[in-house]
Amino acid sequence: MFLERGNSVEAPAAILLENLSKVYDLPPGSAGAAQAVAADNLNLRIAEREVFGLVGPNGAGKTTTLKMICGLLVPTAGRIVVNGVDVERDPEAAQGGIGYLADFFSLYDDLKVWEYLDYFAHAYKMAPETIAGRITDVLRLMGLEGKRGAFIGALSRGMKQRLGIGRAIIHDPPVLVLDEPAVGLDPKGRIEFRQLVHELNGRGKTVLITSHLLHDLEEMCTSIAIIEKGRLLRSGRLEQILGEGVRERRVRIMVASPGFPLVEWLSRREGVTGVTGAAPIGAQFSFAGGPSELASLVKALVVAGASVYAVEPVGETLEKVVMGLSRGEVT
């Protein structure tokens, strides 16, 4: 169906979904259809070293897809290959290369932080002599050094979330699958988390993330897929997704002359459409011309007596793309 175009095709795939489908039964009492299609013939190729965002409204099938990738759910049909290993055929081998964080989880409250990580380090069969050092690394990475000996029950929500991420990366897997990892983090924590993702990506990890915080995703991701009702609406490089459907550039101009009739002035210019804005301070508009035409427009504006102090291009936000798509513009 919708395969990625462009530069990522030649890079080896970290995660490959082929005709992946999952059908759930709904309980007989529920209204409407007897079954929910949580994944509908998904084809997706996530190249190595990508930060890949999976976006979609509630119930789109994100969690289901992630669980299938981790071998926790059996697909109704289709195939999943992670790091070259077929998940259904050899789940343990595939799972060794995946770090998974569930959207909703709890930890063992009566374990200490380091014991928890130690337990999973053993479960992932790390070499015993490397474990202690790895735990220290992970705790530092997650900003939990101070909590090493604390009981998990005494951690705050965000700290638990960090510990969960820590558990997911303890065995240094090449692929990370994170289901809404930023939930419960404070603003600082979210920024730190984005940095963490960048850092992990810099170390060669492939990261697959779902989140409803589209702004965060926009800053982190190299590629995005948008799904709804199990169907892939669009996927590709972030720039590509954001650039698609935009033929005219959107520009914002700010002026420091309160008396200037900015909106009226702009509306009269050639190539300018859709002027909106909080006159007299600033305005946004779509501009059909190229950079030199824009430059002459700004020049004319200054000549007309406006004290221009800012001209900036306004990009399409992921939020808008998603909203546009999920209203059914593309199916």
Binding site: Q95, A102, F104, F120, A123
Partner: peptide
């Protein structure tokens, strides 16, 4: 507690 999944995804 939703912790079983985490054990299932380990290499065990």
């Amino acid at each position: 507690m939703n912790t079983f999944d985490f054990q299932r995804v380990t290499r065990l």
